[in-house]
Design a binder for these strands. Structure first.
Lengths: 153, 153
DNA sequence: TAAGATTGAAATCTCAATCTTG
DNA sequence: CAAGATTGAGATTTCAATCTTA
């Protein structure tokens, strides 16, 4: 019997294992993130993206970074970084500084208020993380999860 | 030596394993989703959320569902479901039907155009999934990943 | 020309209020 | 009053164009 290309409607079919893993990955991250964001919000705190940016800057050597560095560290689009920084600066959590090395750019530095907020957020975030993830995932599973996800990173 | 509550700045500290697994989970899902959404977009197709809704309706017994059912199946807020359905109906992919059982509600049904688009999307989606996930994750790892994520579901 | 960064306008998301029926 | 669903208004995200300097 001759093979016809149009016999298969879709040229590529992911295996049931791939499909199941993918679906669950999307589901679980969505549910966990929603749960943790909800706890931050009900504590009157800003979203996790603010925490992520504040943490990056808090860890940065010299306490400052170029927007383009933050963009790469957070896997954001250029315009997303720009708008996020705009809000953080407006809230007094970051300050802009001129960049002598490359005058197209700038630096952003975390302020004392920014550091204080990051710590307040961490208290809530850490508790939520422990409740949603730590309490349900033995250390061995956490290590396996991390190792397997590393293949997709 | 007496214990002071204020000696620890944060009452709960997730283990390094928990933290690493969480961070990688967020990173990997973000990167994979962005990659797959980008392939859909560059093929001129709508976002994955449209596919998810079309698939749910395609599988539904009788080919129709209540918005509230879709809402629960997709883990969406009520208003998100309402706005998503609005766009799908406007695009001619779904049709609304009256609900005799409960006159507060309605049914939505997938149209022939909706089914056709779902299949076109699946061709691109399946190929992207295979490239981004299947090709990098042996079946054993996919099974382990799914099992471990199940503890967080 | 390319890279870093911003911005107006349009699309989308979210909140809170609303409407209708159970 | 509660549940299913929608919607106006405000916030956020996205696209595409723009600006400045390398």
């Amino acid at each position: 019997m001759q093979m016809h290309e149009y016999a298969t409607p879709s040229a590529v079919i992911p295996s049931p294992e791939t499909l199941a893993a993918w679906t669950r990955l999307m589901r679980v991250q969505h549910k966990l993130l929603a749960g943790i964001e909800a706890e931050l919000k009900s504590a009157g705190l800003p979203p996790l993206s603010w925490y992520d940016a504040l943490l990056e800057l808090s860890r940065a050597p010299g306490g400052r970074m170029r927007p383009v560095e933050l963009e790469r560290a957070m896997l954001l689009a250029q315009y997303s970084t720009s708008r996020l920084l705009e809000r953080l600066v407006r809230a007094g959590l970051l300050a802009r500084e001129p960049c002598q090395i490359d005058r197209r750019g700038q630096f952003v530095r975390i302020t004392a208020d920014g550091e204080a907020l990051r710590e307040r957020m961490w208290n809530v975030y850490a508790a939520a993380l422990e409740r949603h993830v730590g309490a349900r995932l033995p250390a061995d599973d956490a290590r396996s999860l991390c190792r397997i996800l590393g293949k997709l990173a």
